[in-house]
Amino acid sequence: MTLPRMKLTDPKALRGYAHPLRMALLGLLRQQGPMTATRAAEQLGESVASCSFHLRQLAKYGLAERAPGADARERPWRATARATSWDDDSDDPQVRAATDELNAAQLALYTRQAEEFLARRIDEPTEWRAVTGFSDQSLYVTAEELAELTGRIDALLAEYDDRITDPSRRPDGFRRVSLIQLAVLSASPGGGPAPAASANPVEATPAAEPDAAR
């Protein structure tokens, strides 16, 4: 069964999701399927009590739910959607504040993933070190052009969606890669000098959890 996408619009739900562990837990459920709080704690290096609490909070906002267990003692959790999204263009001050809080939590999670990857990157095979890392590039575009560019990127990435839900579609030698997309405006409309870009052509970090937020 293909799970739907979920868009968060309620400020309470947006704030409820704005927690790094909740994002990691939800990503884990999407990546590996239903699991107990005990198993999730083992995967994430967290306490069982903490994972149990945050899984219940995810369920409170409709992001996770109980799944059938192998027996009466096993009580696994599962994700209710394959991706979570939210809009950043609301005129409601409460929604805007909540989305800013959620975006900050998302950025903190991305930063932690990148730092964890860099700590172990030296031990990765040469072929993977050559195509992973970070890069940046300045663009001079209108809001409409940036929206169109983002849509083209999304369409390109969607070509690999079937490999998420169907492991048999994954080719030999595959690794799970997280592509983290950031679109950051310059401080002034005129823009400033372009930052120095790294030589690495691909922005990618193998992460502990997939599609944590969007």
Rank of each mutant, 00 (worst) to 15 (best):
G16I: 02
Y140G: 00
R66S: 15
T80D: 01
A108D: 12
L156V: 08
E65C: 06
T38M: 12
T2A: 12
R96H: 09
T126K: 13
G69L: 04
Q32F: 13
P68A: 13
F174H: 15
V141A: 14
T9V: 15
T150E: 14
E65P: 00
G191W: 08
P20Q: 05
P76K: 02
Q113G: 02
S47H: 08
G133W: 06
Q113R: 02
A199W: 08
T36S: 14
E74Q: 13
Q113K: 00
L21Y: 07
T150N: 14
A98V: 07
S135M: 08
A37K: 01
L3F: 15
R30Y: 07
L63A: 11
R169V: 09
K7G: 04
G192H: 14
T132K: 01
A197L: 06
G62C: 11
I153F: 15
T9L: 07
E145R: 06
R176A: 10
P206C: 00
Q137S: 13
S85A: 13
D162M: 06
T205M: 09
A196H: 10
R170C: 07
A41S: 13
Q181M: 09
K60G: 08
G192L: 11
A114C: 05
E116R: 12
A13G: 06
I180R: 11
R82K: 15
V131K: 09
A104V: 07
G151V: 00
T142E: 12
G33E: 12
A41G: 07
S178A: 14
C51E: 03
